[in-house]
Simulated assay, not measured.
Amino acid sequence: MAVPKRKMSRSNTRARRAQWKTSAVNLQECSNKACRKPKPQHVACPSCGQYDGRQVVQPA
């Protein structure tokens, strides 16, 4: 197994970690015809509480 010969400096570590970027959440329309508000994929709609055409959460 490969082992580093020297400790990586703080500036090099931070420069490497600076490349880790997050991506924006993909939003899609709610499948409820009365709602149609944007919501994250694979998540119950926060405004109407439906997921995949059925009520799973009480709306807030």
Rank of each mutant, 00 (worst) to 15 (best):
Y51V: 01
Q19S: 10
A24T: 11
A15W: 04
P38G: 05
S9K: 15
P59V: 05
Q28E: 15
Y51R: 04
A18F: 08
Q55I: 05
V56T: 06
G49M: 02
A2Y: 02
Q55P: 02
A2R: 02
A15K: 14
Q28W: 07
K33S: 14
A15C: 05
R16D: 05
Q19L: 12
N32P: 02
Q55C: 03
R16Y: 09
P59S: 07
L27E: 10
K7N: 08
P59G: 05
V3K: 09
S23H: 08
H42S: 08
R14Q: 12
K5A: 10
Y51E: 01
Q58G: 05
W20M: 11
C48A: 05
Q28S: 12
Q28F: 07
Q55G: 03
R10D: 14
A18P: 03
A18C: 09
V25M: 12
A24W: 03
R6T: 12
Q19C: 02
R54M: 05
V57R: 15
Q55W: 07
K33Q: 13
C30P: 04
C45T: 04
D52G: 03
V3G: 03
S23C: 04
M1N: 10
V57S: 08
T13I: 13
E29R: 12
R6K: 15
R54G: 01
R14H: 07
S23F: 04
